[in-house]
């Protein structure tokens, strides 16, 4: 049985889809069969970030409604054989994602995949609820900014009370913090919440810190998950994050302005 991971945040624009694409690609590159699903019904974007928008024939809702089977809807990534994408539909009917339908698809996928990554829409409405409901793990994507941190905390409350695991009194969802759009020089000037600040407020396992980087926009412009840009800081930070998720001990990088090593000494152990 594969693990189901939701990439969520509450707030929009913090980097959920960028993270979903990078995370899925990173896991697949390391030999794990992975599927990444776009739960943002009506506003699909994952296919664009993954660069497969012109190969979409059937989508998630088609599969739920029985208009196509999973194999017809899954798009195999051209760069990595272990990676599949299940795009969202453009339909405006958000209720198209039924709890039973989503459960059936995730169940089927987790039989044949190691990891199923659910890219949640923003907000705490139906689509976001469906994306997190069946999760085993949650990646909470947060920007070092007040509204994002607050929304992440609210999302943690929802994960703890409204998931299948919570309803069945099962082992709770494993929650991880991913801090994105981190600008070390602004933190240094006291203009931005630091990684310790956010960590202290949310008290979550810190899986990674992705620096604010031009490479993220460059990657999305060309439909390449940023983790494939191995020269870039953001690409390397996502690579580290995938390694950490898989249990490797990797020190946090890109946290300081210069190579002072303060942060790595604090968080490296």
């Amino acid at each position: 049985m594969g693990r189901t991971i939701v990439v969520t945040s509450g707030k929009g624009g913090v980097g959920k889809t960028t993270t979903s694409a990078a995370f899925a690609m990173g896991l697949a590159q390391r030999g794990h069969r992975s599927v990444v699903i776009d739960f943002d019904v009506g506003l699909r974007n994952l296919d664009l970030i993954m660069g497969c928008e012109r190969r979409v024939v059937y989508d998630f809702v088609n599969v739920i409604n029985g208009e196509a089977n999973l194999n017809q809807a899954l798009i195999r990534d051209k760069r990595c054989d272990n990676l599949y994408i299940l795009p969202a539909s453009q339909t405006r009917d958000k209720e198209a994602l039924t709890k039973e339908g989503v459960g059936k698809v995730l169940d089927e996928l987790s039989k044949t995949s190691d990891y199923v990554i659910c890219d949640s829409p923003a907000g705490i409405e139906h689509g976001a609820h469906m994306a997190m409901y069946y999760a085993d793990d949650a990646l909470v994507v947060t920007n070092p900014e007040v509204s994002s941190v607050r929304d992440s905390d609210r999302m943690l409350g929802i994960l703890a009370s409204r998931s299948r695991r919570a309803e069945n009194n099962a082992e709770p969802i494993r929650e991880y913090l991913l801090l994105t759009r981190y600008a070390a020089e602004r933190v240094e000037r006291g203009e931005m919440l630091s990684v310790e600040d956010v960590h202290e407020i949310l008290s979550l396992d810190l899986l990674g810190v992705i620096p604010e980087s031009k490479s993220v926009l460059n990657a999305s412009n060309s439909g390449v998950p940023v983790i494939l840009d191995v020269e870039s800081d953001a690409g390397q930070a996502y690579g580290d994050m995938v390694a950490r998720y898989l249990g490797e001990e990797v020190p946090h990088r890109f946290l300081g302005v210069q190579k002072r090593g303060f942060f790595s000494r604090i968080f490296g152990g």
Binding site: V146, E188, R189, G190, L193, S194, D197, I201
Partner: peptide, 13 residues
């Protein structure tokens, strides 16, 4: 570190 708006943000949060 200089005391900037980040400390206000942290307290509020």
């Amino acid at each position: 570190r200089h005391k900037g708006s980040a400390s206000v943000a942290k307290e509020r949060l």
